[in-house]
Design a protein around this nucleic acid. Structure first.
Length: 254
DNA sequence: ATGTCACAGTCCCTGTGA
C-alpha cells in the first residue's frame, strides 16, 4: 500500500499536476492539504474517474484538506469537534488504515496569536491520537509547518527567531511521539535531510534552501509493516509546481 | 533578506497569507 501526503497550495491551480502525479505514481491513499476550495467546488467526479473515492473538508479561500482512496473510504471525521472554523484536519478509514490529513497552522511569528493557536492545535492533535486504537494501523500525514530537528532545516542560523524551528513547536510535535507515533521518513532515513518544501522566492529550490515539514507519522502497528519512505522532488520542478513536494510511505499491506 | 504564487475584492492592480 502506498500512501502520500501533499500540500498542493490550491487544488484549483494544481489539478493538472495532481492528476498527472496520480497516474504516474498510483498511490492507494492521498492526503491533501491547502485545497483552498469549498466542498461545492471539489472535483469528486474527476477523482472518481481516476479510480478514487474522495472526501473533502473545505473552507474556501484558505486551508482545506482532503483524502482520496482506492482501497475504500468510510467513517470520515472533520475537524477536532472543538468549534474551530478553520478546515485543517480530517480522517477516514481507508482499507485497514485509519488516516488523518493535517494542515497545521503556520504560526506567522513567535509573538503572533497564530503561534499560540499553532501550539494549542498540535496539543489537541496529540490528545486525539493518544485516545486512538493502538492495535489498528494509523497514519497521520500532513504539512506540520515544523522542522522537527536542525537536520530538517537547510540553515538553522537563518531561522533564528523564526517559526518552524522554535523549541516550543518542536516540543509540541514530540507530543505526537509520546502519543505513540513515529516519524516514518526520518526513521528510515536517519541522516538525509529529505526536504519537502522550498520557498517560491529567491530560487530557493535550486539553491537547496529547503525544510522538511511534510511528515508521515505512523503508529507501531503500521510502522512494523513499513517498507519505504521518500520525497518526490521531481514534483517540485516544471510548470506551476506546488511549493511542497509529495512525501510517500509504502507498507506491506494489501 | 526576500528575486514568488494564489486568493478575493478594491477587479488588470492591491492587500493578505504563505
Amino acid at each position: 500500500m502506498k500512501i502520500v501526503t501533499w500540500n498542493v497550495n490550491s487544488l484549483t491551480a494544481r489539478l493538472a499536476r495532481v492528476t498527472q502525479w496520480l497516474s504516474e505514481h498510483e498511490p492507494d491513499v492521498v492526503l491533501l492539504q491547502e485545497t483552498k476550495q469549498t466542498d461545492a467546488k471539489f472535483p469528486f467526479a474527476h477523482f472518481e474517474e481516476l479510480g478514487y473515492e474522495s472526501a473533502h473538508y473545505g473552507q474556501g479561500q484558505w486551508n482545506g484538506v482532503a483524502i482520496l482512496s482506492r482501497v475504500g473510504l468510510k467513517d470520515v471525521t472533520r475537524g477536532f469537534g472543538d468549534g474551530d472554523p478553520e478546515a485543517r484536519v480530517m480522517s477516514a478509514q481507508c482499507g485497514e488504515v485509519r488516516a488523518f490529513t493535517c494542515y497545521v497552522p503556520n504560526g506567522r511569528a513567535l509573538d503572533d496569536p497564530h503561534y499560540t493557536y499553532k501550539l494549542r492545535w498540535l496539543d489537541t492533535l496529540s490528545g486525539v491520537i493518544a485516545n486512538a486504537d493502538r492495535e489498528a494501523p494509523l497514519i497521520v500525514g500532513g504539512d506540520f509547518n515544523v522542522a522537527p530537528t536542525d537536520l530538517d532545516c537547510y540553515d538553522p542560523q537563518a531561522f533564528e527567531g523564526a517559526t518552524h524551528v522554535s523549541e516550543p513547536e518542536r516540543e509540541a510535535l514530540r507530543g505526537l511521539e509520546r502519543a505513540g507515533l513515529r516519524d516514518l521518513t526520518r526513521a528510515l532515513h536517519p541522516d538525509e535531510p529529505c526536504f519537502s518544501w522550498w520557498d517560491y522566492r529567491n530560487g530557493a529550490f535550486h539553491r537547496g534552501w529547503g525544510l522538511r515539514i511534510d511528515l508521515l507519522y505512523v503508529n507501531a502497528s503500521l510502522f512494523e509493516r513499513a517498507t519505504a519512505s521518500y520525497v518526490d522532488r521531481d514534483a517540485r520542478k516544471g510548470e506551476k509546481p506546488s511549493d511542497h513536494a509529495p512525501v510517500v510511505g509504502e507498507f506491506a499491506l494489501s
